[in-house]
Design a protein around this nucleic acid. Structure first.
Lengths: 223, 223, 223, 223
DNA sequence: TATGAATGAGCCTTCATTCAT
DNA sequence: AATGAATGAAGGCTCATTCAT
């Protein structure tokens, strides 16, 4: 009961924190609310995580890693799969992570919030996970465009932004979307349909770019 | 303390509120901070706006309307201009409104925040401005796709989302972008370059869609 | 319009103040509420009465004097009328002043409140009106008891307290009375019936006292 | 900070609250004043009682119940004691509760205030304690009057009001009394003397009523 | 004479945190 | 390992009052 109870309380605190932080944001959420939901004492947070900040940081780390473990960016595809398929897997897994499936739906909401108003805890997340993900996507993009385009070129970078932007919009503006397109569903098939649209839209664009990649690249890096 | 002074205090409060709310969010921002910045008394907020909520609502309204007046979605183009040009104008003005030019740089940040976690004040903004803007964009999209595509079709809707998503990403993830692409500039020419990229990317996609618009539309409304 | 408007505003302020102060008490009532009701500017109170305190004092003075003018303690009875009749007139006029008739119903409520938690403004009211009234009643009492009883004797004093106590109870505990005896009415005839009961109750007691007035008086002044 | 300390702080807060609320009223009293007097932190009130309202309600409940326990309305008399003695016990205990003895002198002041401008907390006090007390007194009155008079008759009700009115006047108008009769004392014997006067005054009246109880009752219910 | 604007003090409440067990 | 009690720093808001016209 000693070790177990401690770990158990910690777990319940993290779960509750995910729920509450994602719903109310860091500032609005209160330690008391989280503790009540976790059936733990107010002081438990400070005991286990050293404070509100510590709890949030722990939560963020876990959210990222759980998400990536459950929906890896390649979705199990072999490394040598066609770039088109890997692009779809990237987009699809992105949406799955963010739009959540059941219990940990807060995972995406939390990250979306973080990307928008990053707390200090975000720093290392960017370093450890976002930069690699970004590089991974840019390489796929470069491969689709072809013609020797590099992943770190301005073209690849901007196209990657176009793709990520489309993905993020879905869960960032969910409130607006519900208003504009009330019939849109965010279950398994709905998410897949969205991923298909974004992939198709982006592939069309990328392939057209393929034709004048060289001159575009030169022009875009000039302004 | 003539009428001028009254209006002047109100102005200063709104300016300070824009700055602070956009930086810290509604909950985190404090009336005291805003008033200190506006060189006004704490009670002035309650006198002029009835409270923190009222100030926020007034700010939001003004932000929207000032933005639209300074950078209208058609940027002065005649209504019968080619759809491609109108699309560029829409995207360009969108970025100009959001990325701001000098004094009201907070405008975009504020709106981004609102779109993510809308306060009650947002309700009427959606009704009055966002829905019309959305319809306007969908019509442009439908015109580019052609083949009798309607502005309220599922295809037009999803493509509009893809376009708006690309635009919003720029100012929503500014912190991340600064990290990933530190050399990117958000001055006049930088914004224009971004608008050009997004327009080109989207036009390529839309034109490719143009080829199989009918069957896509049918398929997309099925899931 | 100059002089008149000024006096008119003053009048409206006093009326509104009576309403509000009597309903909410001095502390709870706000200058703003009063001014709104009087359709006057917030600063008007300070202009005309020098502040909240001044308004209250003016109101109190007026309340007392208006009340006494409308319902004088002898109700027009000649000075040589029988003591029993003068006692009834005293009690009846007391209740009429306190339970009010229409527009200035606040008059009594205000005074009741004052007697309970006197503000500084009360000091001179006591001096100017309450002490004389008290003496007047004690003389009637002494006359009823007879046997040479003096108005300033302990007996007369205590009996006067018993009488005034019965009167005040009616409007002081109105909330409780409404609960205990919901069918009790406070219109003209209702008030008269109450006055009759209190007079009868008190006269019975006083007349019984009449028998052993001397020894009682001696005993009561001893403790 | 063991349980003892917790209860101790709670006690000190209640004591201070009694003092302050009774002196200044609910609205005027400030949590800060109470906490300073109780040597407790401002937040302690919200921790223990949930806020100013909660503290007040707790205080009121306690005041009532402590008072009734220390000075029960029958003052230990057997239920079959003569009605005259029970009336004296009722009046005497009433004054003892209200005029207090030392530490809880605020008890009466608090209740007087409540009866005049009842807060919401009063509702249940009326239900639980005042109504039963009132019924108890009316039964004594009816028994004294005799002739088959019932405790719920109009006569009993009005006479009970006359009696309670005399009692309440003593502590309600203490300020005035101190002015009119500066030599009056409110210690043990002083209170007893007052109780004796009120009892004698009332008994005289009641016994006179006894003669024409029937017709009076009929007349009084007619107006 | 009268007013809209502005002020500063103060109130209740909330919250993360610490303390003593 | 864990907790109930206590704390102090803000925070939003209200109000009587004053100022400048």
């Amino acid at each position: 009961m000693t070790q177990d109870a401690g770990e158990d309380t910690k777990r319940r605190l993290l779960d509750a924190a995910g729920e509450v932080f994602s719903r109310q944001g860091f500032k609005s959420a209160t330690v008391r609310t989280i503790c009540r939901m976790a059936r733990a004492n107010v002081a438990a947070v400070h005991y286990h995580f050293g404070g509100k900040d510590g709890l949030y940081e722990a939560l963020l780390t876990e959210a990222f890693e759980t998400g990536l473990r459950r929906h890896p960016p390649d979705m199990g595809l072999p490394a040598n799969a066609p770039a088109e398929e890997r692009l779809f897997a990237f987009i699809h897994s992105f949406l799955l992570r963010m739009l959540g499936d059941g219990k940990s739906a807060w995972c995406g909401k939390l990250m979306a919030r973080e990307m928008h108003e990053p707390t200090q805890a975000m720093e290392q997340m960017v370093e450890r996970h976002i930069l690699p993900l970004s590089a991974y996507l840019r390489n796929i993009v470069a491969e689709v465009v072809g013609h020797g385009t590099k992943g770190d070129s301005a073209l690849a970078r901007q196209c990657a932004m176009s793709i990520v932007g489309q993905c993020q919009y879905i869960f960032r503006s969910r409130t607006i979307i519900d208003r504009l397109a009330p019939d849109m569903r965010f279950d398994e098939p709905g998410i897949r349909a969205l991923a298909e649209h974004i992939t198709r839209f982006s592939l069309c664009a990328l392939k057209s770019f393929s034709d004048y990649a060289e001159k575009y690249d030169a022009a875009a890096s000039a302004p």
